[in-house]
Computed example of a mutant assay.
Amino acid sequence: MAPRRKKIYEGKAKILYEGPEPGTLVQYFKDDATAFNAQKKATIEGKGVLNNRLSEYFMTGLANIGVPNHFIKRLNMREQLIRQVEIVPLEVIVRNFAAGSIAKRLGLEEGTPLPRPIVEYSYKNDELGDPLVPEEYIIAFGWANQQDLDDIVALALRVNDFLTGVFYGVGIKLIDFKIEIGRIWDGDFMRLIVADEISPDSCRLWDVKTGQKLDKDVFRRDLGSLTDAYTEVAKRLGVLPTNTQPIKPTLIN
């Protein structure tokens, strides 16, 4: 990493630095893994490299089907150039099958198919443990307006369609995932785009045949090696960090 770069923000899994041009940032992927709101921590060798590659793959694929996002290009093994956005302070969660908190909340068995994809929101605040919030709160507190929420749901469902197809094509079931949304301005006109990252850190992924978990639950629940799980995902998608050529995602119909 170049010295004296201005650090803008450091999160649990990534660092944002000032970018080379106005309106850009450099997103650096760390090897840190955290769970249960950072109560459980570890450094997982190579995780940052895999997540950089996988996020590049998904963001490029989304751009190819017209889903706007912050990704510009990958710079090296751990860094990518992204557009600077104003982050909407919500985690947007899309669930296809019951797992994690919804299974506990509703007493559903993990893996139960949901009647349709469910979109829910949590307020981005680590100290509070990212509490689930209804649309009523979001609008009342001014985090987003009704039009924004309609646009966010539409974006989230398009991402879900794309990811579900890509993963299913390589024998992986997309249980759920979370994304973040950013605002960008073109003059006075504001647009919402997909931001942050899409990686096995932010998805629940199960092998279609065996039900084996290939995501951060491996770390949360001590189910083995996280790097092995993420490498398996990268291998199936044909995205491996040994290959230095940029990867073109293929769309699976």
Rank of each mutant, 00 (worst) to 15 (best):
D215L: 08
T164A: 14
G182D: 06
D161A: 13
P246R: 05
N253K: 12
P3D: 13
N96C: 13
G238L: 01
V88A: 10
G23Y: 00
L192I: 02
L50D: 01
C203A: 14
S225K: 10
I8Y: 08
H70M: 03
V133L: 02
F177L: 02
H70L: 09
T112D: 13
N52S: 11
V88D: 06
M59A: 06
G224A: 04
Y28Q: 13
Y28H: 14
K124N: 14
E136N: 08
G169M: 07
V170H: 06
T34W: 08
I102K: 02
Q27T: 06
R221M: 14
E232I: 00
I247R: 03
A33R: 00
N69D: 03
K213V: 14
G61C: 03
I102W: 02
I139L: 14
V85I: 10
S55A: 13
W143T: 10
Q212P: 08
R78S: 05
F36C: 07
K235N: 09
E136C: 11
V26D: 10
R183S: 07
T227A: 09
P113F: 11
Y137V: 15
G187Y: 02
Q212G: 13
K7N: 05
E232C: 06
H70K: 04
D222W: 08
T34F: 08
R158D: 00
I93S: 07
A144I: 14
S225I: 13
G61I: 04
G129S: 00
T34S: 12
V85W: 06
E110L: 04
A98F: 13
R95F: 00
T164C: 07
A63S: 12
N69E: 01
L114I: 01
Q84P: 06
E120N: 02
A42Y: 02
I44L: 06
I152C: 01
L114W: 00
T231F: 07
E45P: 05
I44D: 05
L50H: 02
Y168D: 15
E136L: 13
V67M: 07
N125S: 13
T34G: 07
P246V: 12
G211I: 13
D207K: 07
I72N: 05
L149A: 00
R5N: 09
K41P: 07
P134H: 10
P249V: 01
K7Q: 15
E180Y: 06
N96M: 07
T24G: 09
G111C: 12
P89V: 12
L132I: 15
L149N: 01
D161E: 15
